[in-house]
Amino acid sequence: MTQFSPWLASHVETIMLWTGAICTIALFSILYKENKVYRVFEHIFLGLGTGYMVSTNWNDIIYPKLWVPLWDKGEWWLVFVLFAGLFYYFIYSNKFNWLARLVIGFFLGVTSGRAFQEFVNDIWPQVATSFKPLIPHAAVAGPTAGKALVKELTTSGAINNLIFLVILLCVMTYFFFSFEQRHPVIKGASKWGRWLMMFTFGAIFGSTIMGRLALLIDRVDFLLNDFGPQVGGKGVMFALLMGAAVLIVYLVSKSKGQAPEYEA
C-alpha cells in the first residue's frame, strides 16, 4: 500500500502509534463503565482476529501447499485431498452426511493410533519419575568417568521425595471412586488430596493475576514510552492518563446515589 502513497509511507509509524493508542484507551474505557466505544472496538478486534486467522490459513497453508502445487505445478493428485477436505461440509446434508462420516472416521483412526505414541512420550516419563527413592544414599559411580550411575540422595532430597509421594497418594485417593471411601485413612487422605489440589488452584489463580498485570504494564509501557513522544513526552502522556483517571473518579463520586449502572 505504501508503494502507492509516499505520504502514507512517511507517516506509517505515526499512524500505527495513534491507532494503537486509540484502540488501547477505547478498550480500557470499559473500566469506567459499559459504553458503545468499547463495544465497537471489541467487535473490531474480534473481526480482525478472525480475519487474520483466515488470511494466515490461506497464505501460509492452503495457497502454498494446495493451490500452487495443484494449479501451477500440475500435481493433480492433490485434488483428492481437496475433495477429502470438502467432504467435511456434507455434515450439513441429511442425504450425503455419510461422506462426512468417512473422513471423520479416517481421522478418528489416525488420532487413536497416534495416542499410543503420545502416551509413551508424554505421560510415561512422568509416571516413571514418580517412583522416587526415599532413603538417602551416596552416589554410585558408573563405567564412564565423571558420570554417576546413581545420583546421590541427600536427607533433604529424601524428605522432598517423601512429601511428593504423600501428595501424589492423597490426590490419587481423592479420585478413587471404585468403592465408597469409608475407612478413616482413605477418607483422611482423600480430604487432604482435595486441600492439596486447592493449594495448586490457588497458586494458578495468583499467577493469573500476575499475567493480567503484565498485560496492563505492557500497554502502559506502550502508551508512555512508544506513544508518549507523539504528544510531547511520557510525562505529558502520564499527566493525560492521570487527568482522565481523576475525572472518572470525580464523575463516579458525583453520580453516586443515582440509578445503578449496568455492571460489566
Partner: peptide, 19 residues
C-alpha cells in the same frame, strides 16, 4: 470503595516506576 478509584490507584502504581 468504588472499583474505579482502585483502578486509578493501580494505574498510578504501575506508571511511577517508568519515571
Amino acid at each position: 470503595v468504588d472499583r474505579r478509584f482502585l483502578y486509578a490507584m493501580l494505574l498510578l502504581a504501575v506508571c511511577i516506576p517508568f519515571f
